[in-house]
């Protein structure tokens, strides 16, 4: 005898739920120009200014490809932080999150949908940067480097989704955009996403180790051999540890939220 729950967990059905939820989430994001336009345009605009117009010949001409990697990081962590940090916070205060929790849909679909739709934004931003770099910055990399850069950047969104989720669950919706911006922009600068970290004074180079964005940037730069040479494993390990911590904090906040 088939129960409803057996039907409901059957694979095609579950895939359908995830797909429709993701599509709805992505459409929602696209229909909010206040989210979509800055997310898509800011990284590209900054890259054009700092990577293509001003500094093109710096670092033996490697500036465009260097900054393509770091603005890639800047670009992808934006949607991750905002979708979770701001989006979840608003939906939590509106009661929409509670509503989702009550619905028969597995709550994981809600988060997966958010992650995937943020990643679709990520893909668009990365592709935009790649095209700008290739056409105007004379960036040329092996195909595996292009592919790996995109993969690393997309996978690198996960820690920031977790970080954003934690903020989103903790912060009031009115405060969330300000808080996220307060984290996002200074972290981006201090992690060397806007200007190469080598240009910073040594003390700032050392404090950059606090930020997950720095480690993701170093991993991405390592694909082109432009990292500061400390060792990929270090950055990977630190980033993984940070992810686990953020996930733990987010889970705890979620449980706390659910109990209320």
């Amino acid at each position: 005898m088939k129960t409803d729950s057996a039907l409901y967990t059957s694979k095609t059905h579950l895939f359908g739920i995830y797909y429709y939820e993701t599509r709805a989430e992505f459409l929602k994001a696209m229909r909010m120009p206040a989210f979509a336009i800055p997310s898509l345009l800011f990284p590209l605009m900054f890259y054009i200014f700092f990577g293509l117009i001003f500094n093109q010949s710096a670092m033996n001409g490697q500036m465009p490809s260097y900054l393509m990697a770091t603005y890639g990081v800047f670009g992808v962590i934006g949607p991750a932080l905002f979708s979770f940090g701001v989006g979840v916070s608003i939906e939590k205060d509106q009661g929409w999150l509670a509503m989702k929790q009550c619905s028969p849909m597995p709550i994981s679909a809600y988060f997966i949908a958010r992650i995937l739709s943020a990643m679709v934004f990520g893909v668009l931003i990365i592709l935009g940067l790649f095209l700008l770099g290739a056409i105007f910055g004379d960036v040329a990399m092996h195909t595996w480097q292009w592919l790996l850069t995109m993969t690393v950047l997309l996978a690198g969104m996960l820690p920031f989704c977790a970080l954003g989720l934690w903020f989103g669950l903790l912060a009031k919706s009115q405060a969330a955009p300000a808080i996220v911006n307060l984290i996002y922009l200074p972290m981006a600068f201090l992690s060397g996403l806007w200007l190469p970290i080598q240009l910073f004074p040594e003390i700032m180079q050392n404090t950059a180790w606090m930020f997950p964005a720095f480690h993701l940037a170093q991993l991405t730069l390592a694909i082109q051999g432009l990292d500061s040479g400390i060792g990929v494993l270090w950055h990977l390990t630190i980033l993984l540890v940070m992810t686990v911590i953020f996930l733990f904090l987010a889970t705890r906040a979620f449980r706390h939220q659910a109990e209320k």
């Binding site: 592709l127 790649f130 095209l131 040329a140 990399m141 092996h142 195909t143 592919l147 995109m150």
Partner: peptide, 11 residues
């Protein structure tokens, strides 16, 4: 996406 990536310039 993969098609686009393959079309990007290589050294």
């Amino acid at each position: 996406i993969v098609g686009l990536l393959l079309a990007l310039p290589t050294p």
